[in-house]
Write a protein that binds this DNA or RNA. Sequence first.
DNA 1: TCAAAAGTGTTAAGTTTACACCCATGA
DNA 2: TCATGGGTGTAAACTTAACACTTTTGA
Lengths: 225, 225
Amino acid sequence: MNSYYRQYPKFHVAVDCIIFGFEQGVLKVLLQKRPFEPHQGEWSLMGGFVKDNEDIDHAAQRVLHQLTGLNNIYMRQVGAFGTVSRDSGSRVISIAYFALLDIDRVNKDLHHEYSAYWEDMNHLPPLLFDHHEMIQGALKKLRGMISHLPVGFQLLPTYFTLTQLQMLYEAILGEKIDKRNFRKRVNEMAFIEKTGEVDRVCSKRGAALYQFNTSAYQQEPFFKL
Amino acid sequence: MNSYYRQYPKFHVAVDCIIFGFEQGVLKVLLQKRPFEPHQGEWSLMGGFVKDNEDIDHAAQRVLHQLTGLNNIYMRQVGAFGTVSRDSGSRVISIAYFALLDIDRVNKDLHHEYSAYWEDMNHLPPLLFDHHEMIQGALKKLRGMISHLPVGFQLLPTYFTLTQLQMLYEAILGEKIDKRNFRKRVNEMAFIEKTGEVDRVCSKRGAALYQFNTSAYQQEPFFKL
DNA sequence: TCAAAAGTGTTAAGTTTACACCCATGA
DNA sequence: TCATGGGTGTAAACTTAACACTTTTGA
C-alpha cells in the first residue's frame, strides 16, 4: 500500500439492498429478520459486507443473489449512508442499492432460508438503523426514473396487461392515473408491443398481453409518461 | 467492536468534492494539482479521507472548508465510487459530493496554497482516476435539481440580475433559454424579489438587482422553471 | 343476468414556444 | 451617436386533464 494512505483509518463497508417487487397492485420490499447480533430478529434490509477485491456494485449483486438466486438483476445505487453511529455494532459505512425484479421469479424456499418476506411498502414495520431512510431514498429515486426510463418492466413478468402496468405506475407514484390517458400514452410508445396473447386469469373478458421490446426502445431512449 | 463484524475487511474511505462556481457566464469547477504520490501533480478533485468518529457528510464539509475557508456550504452527495482499482495507490472507496458556492466568497490565497484553480466545465483537463465520472454525475444531479429547487442561488451573490440568473441556468442546463419566457416565469416566483437596487457594473443602462427570499420560498417549496 | 374488468375519443383548459422592438446609458 | 445590455406582450402550437359508456364472459 502507498505510504501516504497508511496513516488514515479504515472502515467496514457494507451494502444494503432495497429489493422491490410488485404483486396484486401493491409495491413490496423484501425484508428479513436480522440473523445475527446486535439486534438479531429485527426487521432489516438484506445486506452484507464488501469484500477485498470486490467492486461495491458487485457486492450488491452478490447479496441479492444469495437471497434470491437471481443474477443480472436491475440494480442502481441509492447512495452512501455514513453517520458515525448508524450501526450500533460498530462503525459501518453502508451503500444502499435498490433492485427491481419480477416477484414470481424468486424461489420461495431460498428466501425462507433467510427469513425473508415481502412486505407492503405502504405498511412497513419498524426497521433497523437507518434502513427506513434507505427505502425512502430508493423510492424517491425510482419515482424520479419511472416516468422517463422503462424500468417498470423489470418489476413485471415478460407478458403483462395494461391494467397491470397502470397499477404498477400508480403504486410507484402513489397516485391514481386516468385509464384512457394512460393507455393513449402507452400506445404511442413503440417499445411496448401487443403480443396477440390474451390473459384470462385476472379478467373474465380477457386482457391483451403486452411485452417490452428492448431493441425498439434503443430507437427512442426517453419518454414522458 | 461486535464480534460478528470482526471477520470482515476494512477499507479506506474518502470523500471527493466537486466544487461548482459560476463566473462570467461559465460554470466552473475547482480543481487541484494533487499534492502527494501517486500521481502527484495531476489534476484532481479536492478530496480527503474520512476520519474515525466523523460522519461522511461532515468529512465533505471539512475538506471543502480546508480549501475555501467556508462553512455551511450547500453540499449534496453524488454517490459512492467503489471499483476495486479506481485508486492506483490502494483500495479506496470514495464518496463524491458536490458543493455550490459563490465564487467571489472564496479567498484566493487559501486556494492557491492548495494549487487549486477554477476550471471551465466545458474545457476540463484530463483528471485523475474516476474524477471525471464523478463530475459528470454531479452535473447530472445538479441539472435534475435546478428546475425544481432553488439551488441556483447558492452559486450567485446575494444580489443578482436576471441576466446573470438566466446565464446561470443556461450554463447548467447547457442550452439557450428565451429571455422573455425566462423573465415571465421568474416573475411568477414570489421568492425572487426585486430589491430596488440597480447594478451598473455589467450594463450601461443599469439592471435591476434581485434577491432570493428563503422564507417566501417556504410557502411554495417547488416550482417548474 | 349480473358483476367485473377491458376497451375506447373528444373537448376544454392550460402550458409552452416563438418571436422583435424600444430604452437608457457610458464611451 | 452608437454600441451594449435591459426590458417588455401576444398569438399559435402543443400538451394535459377531465370525462362515461359499451363489451365480453364466468360465476
